[in-house]
Design a protein around this nucleic acid. Structure first.
Length: 193
DNA sequence: TGCGGAAATA
DNA sequence: TATTTCCGCA
């Protein structure tokens, strides 16, 4: 059906083929065949010791989706409003960019985009990615623990809100207002601290 | 795991 | 200044 080696292969396109109703959280009947096919692929690509049925959205998927996503630094630059210069993103900007990239959906994705609530599925992968994208480099390894602490600093400045749920974070309404002023799927970062 | 103080650092 | 690092507490 779809061949990954095919240059026309597009995971986003596949997604649009499946008729998913966000209200009922169910897929339409016609889509079930496609789901089964995808499930078949998963069976072939996932290590045999892993029970696919045991995989849920709250587990760390790093063992399952262990393939590397090539890093393209340019994709992670933001334009500084003041200087009009390209620069590495701040942590919250990194999060906005990450959530906007379909290829990173297995890393983290929105649970409730309108409220800015998102969940991280591969904590250490995200922390690792943050380390390679951020401006301020260090010799030590970025861990989810430190990554999460940095996010918690945002509570005080009201850039983020507490969720008190495992691997789940939320942008504040203020941040949502200032950084999601886009109407399409293009992420707009209109800075204004 | 999440939280947040305290101190260090790019 | 914006995290990063370390860590005791819940």
């Amino acid at each position: 059906m779809f061949d990954e080696a095919d240059e026309n292969y597009d995971p986003v396109l596949i997604e649009s083929i499946i008729d998913f109703d966000p209200n009922t959280m169910c897929v339409e009947q016609e889509s079930s065949d496609i789901i089964d096919t995808l499930r078949g692929w998963l069976s072939d690509s996932v290590p045999s010791h892993i029970d696919i049925d045991s995989i849920d959205s709250f587990s760390d998927h790093s063992e399952i989706f262990s393939f590397e996503i090539p890093l393209n630094r340019k994709e992670w630059l933001v334009e500084d409003l003041a200087s009009k210069r390209q620069r590495s993103p701040r942590l919250f900007e990194f999060l906005v960019l990450l959530l906007g990239k379909p290829q990173y959906k297995s890393y983290a994705s929105f649970i409730d985009k309108a409220k800015g609530v998102f969940q991280i599925y591969q904590p250490e992968k995200v922390a690792e990615l943050w380390q390679s994208v951020k401006s301020r480099q260090s010799n030590q390894r970025m861990t989810y623990d430190k990554f999460a602490r940095a996010i918690r600093w945002y509570y005080k400045s009201n850039i983020m809100q507490k969720t008190n749920t495992r691997y789940t974070f939320q942008f504040s309404s203020k941040t949502l207002k200032n950084y999601f002023v886009d109407e399409n799927n293009n992420t707009k970062l209109s800075l204004k601290s």
